[in-house]
Design a protein around this nucleic acid. Sequence first.
RNA 1: GCCGGGAUGGCGGAAUUGGCAGACGCGCUGGUCUUAGGAGCCAGUGCCCAAAAGGCGUGCAGGUUCAAGUCCUGUUCCCGGCACCA
Length: 848
Amino acid sequence: MPQEHKSITATRDERYDAQRIEQKWAERWQSDPSLYAAEPNSTKPKYYVLEMLPYPSGALHMGHVRNYSIGDALARYMWMNGYNVLHPMGWDSFGLPAENAAIKNNTPPKEWTLSNIAAMKVQMNRLGFAYDWSREVTTCLPEYYRWNQWFFLKLYEQGLAYRKKSKVNWCPKCCTVLANEQVVGGNCWRHEDTPVEQRELEQWFLRTTKYADELLRGLETLPGWPDKVRIMQQNWIGRSEGTLVDFDLGGTVGPAGSTITVFTTRVDTIYGATSVQLAPEHPIVSDMIARDAGLRTKVEELIAEQRRAKEAGDIGEIEKHGVFTGRYAKNPYNGEAVPVWVANYILMDYGTGAIMSVPAHDERDYEFAKKYKLEIRLVILPASSDPEETVAEPQLPFTTMDGILVNSGEFSGLSCEEAIEKMSALAEEKKFGKATVTFRLKDWGISRQRYWGTPIPMVYCEKDGVVPVAEKDLPVILPEKVTVTLAGGSPLQGVPEFLNTTCPKCGGPARRETDTMDTFVDSSWYFYRYADARNDKAPFDTKTIAYWFPIDQYIGGVEHAILHLIYSRFWTKFMRDMGLVNNDEPAQRLFTQGMVIKDGAKMSKNLGNVVSPDEMVARYGADAARLYSLFAAPPDRDLDWQDTGIEGIQRFLGRVYRFFVRNANPDHPEWRKPVPAELSSEARAIQRKLHQTIKRVSDDFQGRWHFNTCIAAIMELLNEVYGAEEAIASGRVPVSLIAEVQRGIVLLLAPMAPYLAHELWEMIGERGNLLKAPWPKYDAALAAEDEIEIPVQINGKLRSKVVVPAAATEDQVKQSALADEKVKAAIAGKQVVKNVYVPKKLLNIVVR
RNA sequence: GCCGGGAUGGCGGAAUUGGCAGACGCGCUGGUCUUAGGAGCCAGUGCCCAAAAGGCGUGCAGGUUCAAGUCCUGUUCCCGGCACCA
């Protein structure tokens, strides 16, 4: 036996040299920039596959390799299936790290960024990703960011961009404000150990809340998005239906008026309201403390407590404190005057910053009332199926909606749901309130007190106030000679030639806005620019967008589930309303790949478990690195990187290579002949496995995207032909079949290991472009088994297996089973109660 | 607290619809070729038992079913998101 396999022993010539092969093809591919270009006027169906663009930090990490390997496999697969594929790449190249590098190394941010881009582009090309670089987008260049400014002007015209003074999140490390979405558990999203401070600043906001409802409803039109992401966005938008109710204070307190409007989702419990609770920062509280020094001290304490809790990220666990203001407010439903309190658990930025407190039917109010000995009044009793039955007093607080109103005047006896409807209607009728909808989603604060970003195209004129820059004067160029520091305000304030300008309206002296835009503005629409990347008249041409959009498949990390993906959806809706695009949503399908981890933890410099893509490519080759990142786990799950795992993949690629070296014979007269219908059983087994493999790989590409099982299937096929090597060597397998198998392997491997696939394609004498070679089709008849093995269970336990022809009937299977020695022994002396036969799957004999 | 996701050999993972648990790969063991093997090739490898026969096995406890990793009830732990949201 060992002798027979002598020929499989590797010789020097058969060695798989990834570096040699990959260098050769990388050169060829780069010499033809049109290779991966999308066709402008194509009759083919379009397919837009997009991976999230990287921040040019200087080097790709394994998460990028994984993300882009998935996208590239899909793009290549779609090319092979005859689609006109758009597969672009770009650089999310504004942002703080460039400024930090500038401070540290005294390198201008632009220089640092562009050299990083150049380096990462080399990495991407070395990995063999098939991008249409003619559409490359670099967000930090004026050709791109001028359109950010243009969009800003459009938003401003429509009242969707506005300036307001408000409490904002401030990261002391970034020295800039952050959007709500960029605050993670009270900390900065980039500095996970840095608590965000609250500062009062005048800032530019985009009115994302205008689309709150549509952003929420739109999620239902996105079945191609992961449930997880949709649920996260749903929670983030936080729609809540409720009622606004005015409580009259009886006499004006100050500029904020004499009415406290509360928001409640449970107006049905209002007869149980025994106090009104105000957020410490409520304007009416400001009025009250203006005339009451004692109250002021206490309220300031509450504000401080609230601020501390917010900054520590545990506002949810704040110990409830409050203070009675000495005032009373009238409940418009029953005319009762209830005490007005200020409490540290009431948030100014949700609802109206004021609530009615119903201790009997709300956990928080209950806790507060217990502490301050406020009245607890039961107004809802649990619903009983039997109206005659006297209901026991429920355990307090009783918060479910499953109840009946009591002690609630004319509304007593109604169910909670009925009551909410009728009571809201009454409020509206009597003009002391109305049904309303509140959202958790806030407007997007986009001002950043940083240098390396898009200048906001506004000027401040002493005479005309806030004036937008004229469209024709765009772009407002970001100056390059700037001293970047991380102290006090935007570095642009220190650049007089930028700062000082003239008013677009009156021509008089004016000052430019020195804040720059959040970099999430850049990434909110970059994928539209790809479709028409060199347009200098408009951000893009609407007709071109209509052809390419929506994106067919977007692929990226789940960490963007809220931030980038909600802003992008907002931007699409605003552009649609402008008439710039026709689609309601940017991407039809979204795929979020799992993280790459090592030794059970996220890769990080601190842990020293970082795997470098460059090192992997140098040691194992790009194909191995790509294939392993597809093989080690299904793409939606986290991937545990194992160095021995990639070695296994490299071994597999070597086995493939050697099989081809030994058996490729394109000059053989039979190489291109059809495979004969009559085959030896050995040859037939290979043919069957080939067709089964084509089916399995195709199914996975179409459906679940479990590339790990695709690759496993190809490995099985290879193992099959290795097992038949002796039959091949001695001519019992027709050359035409070997040719078919080799063509099949190359085609199946082409999307995932393009370098080796191209090399082998050439080796087997193919001259056509593999990138667009048709994806192989399987023949169901050839994939079908002639004989199948049927497991035989006795009472549900596996006892034997019988081999029967694939077409065997139930009776035939039973007969062979009953003839089987093991089965006979197992049922000897017992009575067969019944047989369960699952065609082609299993036979279970139930005995007693 | 609420909302997702997960738990399968020594490891990564497979089992797409309730039908042979552990495909494929890693690791390990043995063999072979070799001056050598850290290359290649072949074989074995869930656990228990000396082996066979057999038994046990998909976080845990129950249940449904001829049949459960898969369905139902309860429960533990891990990961992610949200969190006095009124």
